Simulated assay, not measured.
Amino acid sequence: MEGFDPFATSVEAGAVVTAAAWVQAALTGTIAVSIAVIAIAAVGVAMMSGRIDMRRAVITVIGCFVVFGAPSIAAGILEAASPGANNAPDIASVVLEEPAPLPQIASQPAYDPYAGAAMPVQ
């Protein structure tokens, strides 16, 4: 959040909105990114030395993705939940087309160079 001042107050933004913005800035700021990088490195070292299992390592990585991707995840959920965002086609408007006819097959057999190889010699 560029230019965010956590101590600034405005008439339209209440204390809860200001607090939420401060928490978001703290969770996605440079200190949080540094802590996440150190956590991923520590999990990698612990996993290579056999002190941690794969499940806990994957949970740590997914947790970092969720924390740093939370704004875009929330925006996607809000866009999907908005009443005018139904992008699915209406079933009544779907027009079924008749399938194309199959091509006619020639009556003579196809050339097979090995057809006589299995025939007994007469």
Rank of each mutant, 00 (worst) to 15 (best):
V61H: 01
E79S: 15
D90Y: 00
E98I: 02
L27C: 13
T28Q: 09
S10K: 04
Y114S: 14
V61G: 08
V67L: 11
V95K: 14
V121W: 03
T18G: 13
I77H: 05
F7C: 09
G3Q: 01
A75Q: 06
F7S: 15
D5R: 04
V43G: 07
V95M: 15
S49V: 10
P71G: 07
A106P: 08
P113G: 04
I105E: 12
I31Y: 07
A118W: 04
T9S: 07
S107Y: 08
A13W: 01
A15C: 00
A100L: 14
A100C: 08
G63W: 02
S72H: 11
P71H: 01
S34Y: 03
V11N: 11
R51C: 02
W22E: 15
G84C: 14
A19I: 08
I52A: 02
I38P: 07
A74S: 04
R56C: 11
I91M: 08
V61Q: 02
I35T: 10
T18M: 06
I91Y: 03
D90F: 06
I105T: 15
G69L: 01
Q122F: 12
A85N: 05
V45C: 07
A106I: 03
I91G: 05
A25L: 01
E97Y: 01
S93P: 06
P83D: 10
V23A: 13
T30A: 13
M1W: 07
A92K: 07
L102Q: 11
L78Q: 14
A42N: 06
S93V: 09
R55C: 00
D90S: 11
A19H: 09
V23H: 08
I52D: 00
S82R: 01
A41I: 13
A42L: 12
I91Q: 05
E2G: 13
E2H: 11
A19N: 13
Q104W: 10
P83M: 07
V43W: 00
A42K: 03
A41N: 08
R51K: 09
L78K: 10
F4S: 15
P109W: 05
V16A: 14
A57S: 04
A80C: 05
P71N: 05
T60M: 01
M1K: 10
A81D: 03
Q108S: 15
P83C: 11
M47K: 10
M1F: 12
V37H: 06
I105Y: 02
E12Q: 08
A8I: 03
I52T: 04
N86S: 11
I31C: 10
I38L: 13
V121F: 07
